[in-house]
């Protein structure tokens, strides 16, 4: 059973090649890979951007020093349009799509599924509009309203 679990999108004021480069070079990833309060030390990032290549990071919590290593393998590296990797521990697949909007603006769409996208039935892909993350947001609102 396959389903999109999460879709996040953002538009950046930068050319597509540069945005793609930032997502695939440790020197750039170290600046943004850790969320707020978390760093991603440069010497612990491994990027081998080809199908089957390793994508490893260690995120370090700034307040207590706890570490969170992640290990993934690239499934697709198509500069500068698309990048996908599968996480070793969860089997979760992350696909990043880079769309050139013109005027040096780039849209990045992150989609997470619990199976590799190549294995998804096209009809299942068409059904993404009713995807789980929207349902989750809907239920979260429902839950909050009730509590």
């Amino acid at each position: 059973m396959s389903e999109q679990v999460l879709h996040v999108t953002r538009v950046f004021e930068a050319p597509r090649e540069l945005v793609f480069t930032c997502m695939t070079e440790p020197e750039h990833l170290t600046h943004f890979w850790g969320p707020i309060g978390v760093t991603a030390p440069l010497d612990q990032i491994t990027v081998d951007p080809r199908p089957g290549g390793a994508f490893r990071t260690v995120m370090v919590n700034e307040s207590d020093g706890s570490t969170y290593p992640t290990s993934a393998r690239y499934l697709e590296v198509s500069a500068p349009e698309r990048l996908s990797w599968i996480e070793d521990h969860s089997g979760m697949t992350v696909t990043a799509t880079f769309t050139d909007l013109g005027d040096d603006r780039t849209q990045v769409d992150i989609r997470q599924t619990n199976v590799p996208p190549q294995m998804l039935d096209p009809r299942a892909q068409a059904g993404f509009l009713t995807s789980l993350d929207r349902f989750a947001a809907y239920l979260a609102r429902l839950s909050r309203a009730e509590r």
Binding site: R10, V19, C22, F32, P35
Partner: peptide, 14 residues
């Protein structure tokens, strides 16, 4: 939230 915060940082970096 993780991706949103990552993207905030990436925006600054770019």
């Amino acid at each position: 939230r993780t991706w949103s915060e990552r993207f905030d940082k990436l925006d600054n970096h770019l």
